[in-house]
């Protein structure tokens, strides 16, 4: 379904189809939510409260279903320090303090389109966090370049990890389920009742499971991991890419949708869905300043 959506990019202008526009709208909505909630964060707010603020904000704007419910991580939980079981990802009663880094991560489904975003920030001054955020930029470039080169996803994963190591950081997306740096997202049917399983929307999980099944037959996987099942060239579709840096109790990530198509033109074969996002704007501002 998603591959159908993305193959229909107008080659001349690179204009987006209605479907891609739908995905971009919901991604923008999610980032707007992240910025709105981040602006309201103050010392003493807990992770649970921050997650609830995201949920309410999006629900007020028509979001009824989720790929996954919003997460919020504060302090050294942004680097997943001491995470052993997946339950530790869920928001806790950790309170935000001055200078603490935080990450808001949400995946709303709006009118059938899915977004999955990650927003890193910190409360007040934190030079280490600033450095981490700035050092995420080459990863965004590296991933796009190597996807356009049609390198196997597993190799790209390893190259990202090598760059992180060279920068002096730890790869923290390895802590995610299956150690994924990205996963596929797609359109889901809007249903009046969509229950959730461990914070993940069942509709979205169904889509992922369907992809996994098809992929298993054809030799690809909707999960972009360091394992052999990701040893295949990029599969057309929408990938929510989330490189996550960790450095001694401080973590930073971005997450946004990478569009992969079957176009022969390298420029059109892969591109970021939207270049007008907070972290991209921030890098541009830093460069001009």
């Amino acid at each position: 379904m998603t591959s159908a959506a993305v193959s229909a990019v107008s080659a001349s202008q690179g204009e987006l189809t209605a479907r891609l526009r739908g995905f971009r709208e919901v991604q923008r909505l999610a980032y707007a939510c992240a910025e709105a909630v981040a602006a309201q964060l103050k010392p003493g707010v807990t992770e649970r409260e921050a997650a609830r603020m995201q949920r309410y904000w999006l629900r007020e704007r028509g979001v009824a279903d989720w790929f996954h419910l919003p997460f919020a991580w504060f302090g050294d939980r942004t680097a997943f320090v001491g995470f052993r079981v997946p339950l530790q990802f869920f928001p806790t009663n950790r309170r935000l303090e001055a200078g603490m880094p935080f990450i808001l991560d949400m995946a709303p489904v709006h009118q059938g389109f899915t977004a999955d975003i990650g927003y890193s920030g910190c409360l007040g001054l934190n030079p280490v966090h600033d450095k981490l955020l700035a050092d995420l930029e080459p990863h965004r470039e590296l991933i796009l370049r190597e996807v356009r080169e049609r390198r196997p996803l597993r190799e790209i994963y390893e190259d990202v990890e090598r760059l992180m190591t060279r920068q002096g950081y730890a790869n923290r997306h390895r802590a995610y389920p299956f150690g994924v740096i990205a996963h596929k997202v797609g359109q889901v049917k809007e249903r009046r009742w969509s229950p959730r399983l461990f914070g993940f929307g069942t509709q979205a999980l169904k889509g992922l499971a369907g992809d996994a099944l098809h992929g298993h037959r054809d030799g690809w996987s909707p999960l972009w991991s360091p394992y052999t099942f990701s040893d295949h060239p990029p599969r057309p579709g929408l990938w929510a890419v989330e490189p996550h840096l960790g450095f001694r109790g401080t973590g930073a990530k971005f997450e946004e949708i990478l569009v992969v198509t079957d176009s022969k033109d390298p420029e059109q074969s892969a591109f970021w869905l939207d270049d007008d996002l907070p972290h991209v704007r921030r890098w541009a501002e830093e460069k001009s300043a």
């Binding site: 280490v128 450095k131 920068q167 001694r248």
Partner: peptide
């Protein structure tokens, strides 16, 4: 150089 730079930061 990178190690020294990050060391100063922390």
């Amino acid at each position: 150089a990178r190690t020294a730079e990050m060391a100063r930061l922390i």
